[in-house]
């Protein structure tokens, strides 16, 4: 309820935020929507010495047509995604997945950049961006670089972002008319997925798994099987290959593996793969 003491820096620009990160190093955490970080701080499971608030960088809040891609500013809120006409036309899965994040309060505060940078394997949006084959744009003291979504998630709550880098943009391909599915299995509407599966069929089929290990995962065995001509049901049997799911109050490791297979089959069938 009451976090440990911390200093608070409000960044007026991306450059200021990056400079503040450089100055405070590991002591600092970026604050965007705050819906992952603040609960951890209130439980004193996270005790950053400095919060660098990027929540008011409105120039990083947009959903734009960028040729064959859609460019989304990192501070775009889930609510903006779930109500975007552009996404409805060009990438309806992302819009749908954003609609399933948390509850309305969370969706009005939480940001896509915050969700991806937090790199929670149980979150919805990282898996969606992975399945879509998205690209993330990071800005640091030496300028911008692009990171493929498949390279972004490096460990439990760890990403490829350097300590002084700010995630600024997320790019996803336009996939109008592509078959897609997001199977979120949870017990209450507001909860994280016990297991989730995102599938999008755009030429090849991208499949990503939620909560099946320490990071959001591509279901590569499934993708390979499909590429090799396997049926949805056959491919789905390989959904848990190479995963290391954990056990918790909601599921044993074995049950998670089972759910991954069932939900992948359903996702592939719904996506028409």
């Amino acid at each position: 309820m009451i976090p440990a003491k911390f200093d608070y820096v409000r960044a007026g620009s991306a450059a200021e935020a990056i400079a503040a990160l450089g100055e405070h190093g590991d002591e600092a955490k970026l604050l965007a929507g705050g819906h992952s970080l603040l609960p951890l701080m209130k439980l004193r499971l996270a005790t950053p010495a400095v919060l660098v608030d990027v929540g008011r960088l409105d120039d990083l809040r947009y959903i734009r047509d960028a040729g064959d891609q859609i460019a989304i500013g990192a501070l775009t809120r889930h609510h903006d995604l779930e109500t975007s006409d552009l996404l409805a036309e060009q990438c309806p899965m992302l819009r749908h997945v954003a609609h399933l994040v948390g509850d309305p309060q969370v969706r009005h505060r939480g940001t896509i950049g915050g969700s991806l940078a937090h790199a929670d394997p149980a979150s919805d949006l990282p898996a969606a961006v992975l399945a879509l084959g998205g690209t993330l744009v990071a800005r640091g003291p030496d300028g911008e670089r692009e990171i493929a979504a498949t390279e972004f998630f490096t460990g439990f709550l760890e990403s490829a972002l350097a300590g002084d880098e700010l995630l600024t943009e997320i790019r996803v391909p336009k996939v109008p008319g592509a078959g897609w599915s997001y199977q979120k299995f949870n017990r209450r509407a507001q909860d994280w997925a016990i297991v989730g599966v995102a599938a999008v069929r755009n030429g090849t089929t991208g499949v990503a798994l939620v909560n099946m290990g320490t990071t959001p995962l591509r279901a590569t065995a499934v993708e390979e099987a499909l590429a090799g001509g396997a049926s949805a049901a056959e491919a789905a049997e390989r959904a848990d290959e190479g995963t290391e799911p954990t056990a918790d109050l909601n599921a044993s490791e074995e049950y998670r593996r089972h759910l991954a297979r069932v939900l992948t089959r359903r996702a592939l069938e719904e996506a028409g793969a």
Binding site: L43, R187, R188, Q190, D191, L249
Partner: peptide, 29 residues
């Protein structure tokens, strides 16, 4: 019947000590 349980481990630690783990239903349920 469906959601709530104060779940303890064998050492007597409450595993469902937050409302993320102790599943009080909302209007959606």
């Amino acid at each position: 019947a469906l959601w709530e349980e104060a779940a303890y481990d064998g050492d007597g630690n409450l595993r469902s000590a937050t409302l993320a783990d102790y599943l009080v239903p909302s209007a959606a349920e």
